[in-house]
Design a protein around this nucleic acid. Sequence first.
DNA 1: CCTAACTCCGTATGCCTTACGGAAATGGTC
DNA 2: GACCATTTCCGTAAGGCATACGGAGTTAGG
Lengths: 255, 255
Amino acid sequence: MESQDIDRTLGLLWRRTLGTPQGSRGPKQRATIDEVVRAAIAVADEEGLPAFSMRKVADRLGLKLMSIYTYVPGRSELIGLMVDEVAGEQELPPHKGPLRQRMTRVAEQLWDEFHRHPWLLQVENSRPWIGPNISDRYEWQLAAIEGAGFTDLQMDQVVTLLSGFTAGMARASVDARRTAERSGISDAEWWEINAPVLERVMPADAYPVSGRVGQAAGAEYNAIGDPERTFRFGLDRILDGLEQFLTVADTGDHR
Amino acid sequence: MESQDIDRTLGLLWRRTLGTPQGSRGPKQRATIDEVVRAAIAVADEEGLPAFSMRKVADRLGLKLMSIYTYVPGRSELIGLMVDEVAGEQELPPHKGPLRQRMTRVAEQLWDEFHRHPWLLQVENSRPWIGPNISDRYEWQLAAIEGAGFTDLQMDQVVTLLSGFTAGMARASVDARRTAERSGISDAEWWEINAPVLERVMPADAYPVSGRVGQAAGAEYNAIGDPERTFRFGLDRILDGLEQFLTVADTGDHR
DNA sequence: CCTAACTCCGTATGCCTTACGGAAATGGTC
DNA sequence: GACCATTTCCGTAAGGCATACGGAGTTAGG
């Protein structure tokens, strides 16, 4: 990655603040950066990130492949723009109500976003771009727990805890949904093929606990698991733990 | 995906149980499936999953590209074999000690595995393969909390909670490490390029809470965050929440 | 000894990103 | 009004990828 690309991408991320630096000479662009980003998001929404390609973005805009590179430096930078863009879709209303409700909203908001744009879970962000919507949301997430009794350091850890957990559960949920919708071989067919081998290879007594638990899960919901319910269960436990942490800190056990 | 590929891959996964069905006619294979899987893991360990290719696996074994396809049906099936293989690296010792310690070990084991094989976090498992090592580990994870007072359904949810959370935190940790080791542009250079733009675009008063929290984090550790410490903090809160759940259930408040 | 079955692999197809350079359009400047 | 620097759009090509197909050579069962 070239340093000028970093500069350029930052400029694109903050384009609403910085304005679009239009060199005035040449022909007008036939599309706008916003259209490119929106088209890219549409492609990713429909086909997922592995099938997302520069060509498909170009096709959707009636442009030819290489023209896209006059709008964005490359594929990974475009994905950075997409991530910040969808982070701006949700409102960040002023926080009110008790702490637990606020934290719940933080988690739920991410949960919804991951389900609206499942490809977010496939983004490699070894060097995350710092864009306006990401920044606003982080500020909003921290504000949700401001004044609750956490230290500054702990505030960051709490937000990371909620985000990380939610991402993990959303991944399971989205994978399950993808599996159900999978073209090619249906879920039923897949199990039909798996069953004879697995029965042969997994005798009943080899997996006593998993066998029992799997049966309970299969009886309760009609699938391997119910991701939404698992998300709720885990979130409740985490919130319990956080509240307890604040109580204990309050009575002086925790510095 | 063809149904015969599913069958074949299941056979490969459970090859130690089922034995290797050797058609006896033709020439002997020059390598073994285990060698292929081990070579593939080595490639992924060194270069990550995006750079992982069938050609590199072949090169490492002194075979030509297309020969790999006589061992495994394709790339995604090979990855399935790799996942199960590394799941078998860790011992699953009998559980002892208090519940909290047992659950900690479950989380720590995954934490370690993700750090030993960071590419695990990049695997798309919309249809997860059920292999022997995955199955054994799941049984072991459930056994860790067997008899603690959870219902069968809740046992699955607890394991999912611990796994999902750990994966989320490990992702942050691994990404941070990758960033630090990134070739091309160093972390320092990256911030040097970012800083002037961000200062211009993020005035001090626009992000009061993030600004304060970011400063606290920067002062405490020398980076954006300390993933290991965040993992510990979150895990402790989760374990608190789970213990509290059991206590409350015990006194009859929860059905 | 013959031949079915199997391994190894060369070739080709059709994706992908992106470097490079050319043609055409546009607006500022003389 | 003419010129030209700048910019857009895009054709081409290089180099990567997975994998379908078929051929050559090897092996063991009949």
